[in-house]
Amino acid sequence: MSSANLLLYGRRRAVNYIVLALSYAATVAGLLVLFLIMWSLLRNGLPAFGIDFFTQSTPPPNGEGGLLNAIYGSLVMTAVGTAIGTPVGILCGTFLAEFSRSSRLAMAVRFINDILLSAPSIVIGLFVYVVMVVPMGHFSGWAGSVALAILVVPVVVRTSENMLSLVPSGLREAAFALGAPQWKVVVLVVYRAAMQGMLTGVLLAVARIAGETAPLLFTAFNNQFWSANMDGPMGNLPYVIFQFALSPYAGWQQLAWGGALLITLAILTLNIFARLLANWSSFEK
């Protein structure tokens, strides 16, 4: 090899090493941030956990208390939001996958749905404020649930369409050959075959809305006291974390970290569970 060739070879190798080292470094950086966040959550949040944390309502500044009302409000609004959003999403996904795969309407719905999937959640909050809170005259748990439901819909539409499309058409044809009408084929055969996948989608949607703060700011607002009344302002974990973390009181900040840890653990568990479920069903096929 001539010296010019050696030089070229050496330079190519050097460039290669640099690029590879940088991409290792990038991955390490990404993982490091995840561990740093989890570490600070555990360190600052764990001391807040105790019996009071789960059994008392949010305290006044410098008082003793827990997050019971906020935990309850978050659970209820997440549940109602999911209950409203899931059927809408599944029916829309059914239309896209079963009735109209490539019509112009289906293309438009898919396109708009993908946009709604990433649309800023605070704008959804504004929308619900304008159409629900203003006419009703006050903040309410219902308005918060509707805002969350609007966030659930695009996630469920996307996953249920994908999962329904994966069901082999042989199954449908077999059911048709037995004389079943299309609605029975879809409801009794296709839904059953795609059940696990659709459940994954719903779990991911729950994980997404459980920590959402922005859409609740102007809809459910907050309630310092225990309240099971969906027709009035309702406490919720994300809002309490927001309010307490930015307050100057040490006790409030402590509760904010505890709430943050609780919500993160719940969401990560849901996410991992949803992924395991998805893997499990794909192994089975």
Binding site: T27, G30, L31, V33, L34, L36, I37, S40, L41, N44, A207, R208, A210, G211, E212, T213, A214, P238, I241, F242, A245, L246, A256, W257, A260, I263, T264, I267, L268, N271, I272, R275
Partner: peptide, 24 residues
């Protein structure tokens, strides 16, 4: 596993990034 861990970063809610950004 590594792909999943990176994707879990996306699952952490915005408010957690906020509190971490402010205090850490």
């Amino acid at each position: 596993p590594i792909g999943t861990l990176i994707e879990l970063l996306a699952a952490i809610p915005s408010i957690i990034y906020g509190i971490w950004g402010l205090f850490v």
